[in-house]
């Protein structure tokens, strides 16, 4: 495992990675479109360990979402394989929770009913999870808003609600698809800090897709940088920032320099 990490520019002894949970092996996805086949993801390989926070960063349309959907079992791969805890991912798995672009709340349900939606689909009794949900609502500052409808909540509140919905049934893996992309910069910082807080509390394994290098550097243990379509793994970057992370770190020389490196890497592959 350590040999893989050698490819990173900031090598730093990738502190003995904990037990591997997700293995992506030469994942390839071809979509059949009206204008012919489209190679979205080209033999992408990576491993993600227990409790790790991994960000996938790349330009729009590089196949980040495709990768995430393959991980979640929503989309089958054209070739290659994905395994979670040793078993191949062939469809949605109960240990996975997804957070989508936009908040993706159901507008005809109030906040509480949105949060209980996974339980309804899974036909799972929510009673044992009540205190957990209440705690989550308090952590994200939504206690007291249980009866509000999505349209009565701000964009940030909606996205916080979708975090609670994802964590409500205690999945061990969180797959997040540019969840804060539509929020303004300040709300986004706030959401990043909140997510880090939830992560340090609950130690989920997180795969977080974003097109913001700053967001990725700020949160991740490790960044998978992708090339533009077809999506390939350009490089793996281990982030050497202490935790807990603070907003001030974003102006540290290390942060600025690494962000620049990743940006150049992506730009270089755009030109090719």
């Amino acid at each position: 495992m350590a040999a893989e990490a050698q490819t990173t520019p900031t090598t730093a002894a990738a502190s003995a990675r904990p037990s591997t949970r997700l293995v992506i092996d030469k994942a390839t996805k071809i979509y059949q479109t009206a204008t012919g086949p489209l190679l979205a993801l080209d033999s992408f390989s990576a491993e993600i360990g227990e409790g790790e926070f991994v960000c996938v960063v790349g330009p729009s349309g590089c196949g980040k979402t495709t990768l995430l959907w393959a991980l979640s079992g929503l989309h089958p791969l054209t070739s290659g394989a994905i395994t979670l805890d040793g078993t191949p991912v062939k469809g949605p798995r109960p240990e996975i929770g997804m957070v989508f672009q936009e908040a993706n709340l159901l507008p005809w349900r109030n906040l509480m009913k949105n949060i209980l939606f996974p339980f309804e689909i899974k036909r799972l009794d929510a009673a044992p999870y009540r205190t957990r949900i209440q705690h989550l609502l308090e952590t994200v500052g939504l206690a007291g808003f249980e009866n509000k409808f999505p349209r009565e909540l701000s964009g940030g509140m909606q996205q916080r609600a979708s975090l609670v919905r994802c964590l409500s049934f205690d999945p061990s893996v969180m797959l997040m698809d540019e969840p804060f992309g539509a929020l303004d910069a300040f709300t986004r910082d706030e959401m990043n800090l909140l997510l880090l807080k939830l992560w340090s509390e609950q130690r989920k394994t997180i795969v977080f897709v974003t097109h913001s290098i700053v967001e990725a550097l700020f949160m991740a243990d490790r960044i998978l940088v992708m090339t533009p379509r077809p999506g390939r793994l350009a490089r793996e970057v281990v982030v050497n920032l202490p935790r807990p992370r603070t907003l001030e770190m974003q102006s540290s020389p290390y942060f600025v320099e690494t962000a620049r490196e990743i940006k150049e890497l992506i730009h270089a592959s755009v030109k090719k």
């Binding site: 959907w69 929503l74 996974p118 689909i121």
Partner: peptide, 19 residues
């Protein structure tokens, strides 16, 4: 996106229809 949400929790076709 909403169908994908339900599907990610393992919803079947019937559940997607009425939920």
């Amino acid at each position: 996106a909403k169908i994908a949400l339900a599907r990610s929790y393992g919803a079947n076709t019937l559940q997607i229809f009425y939920k």
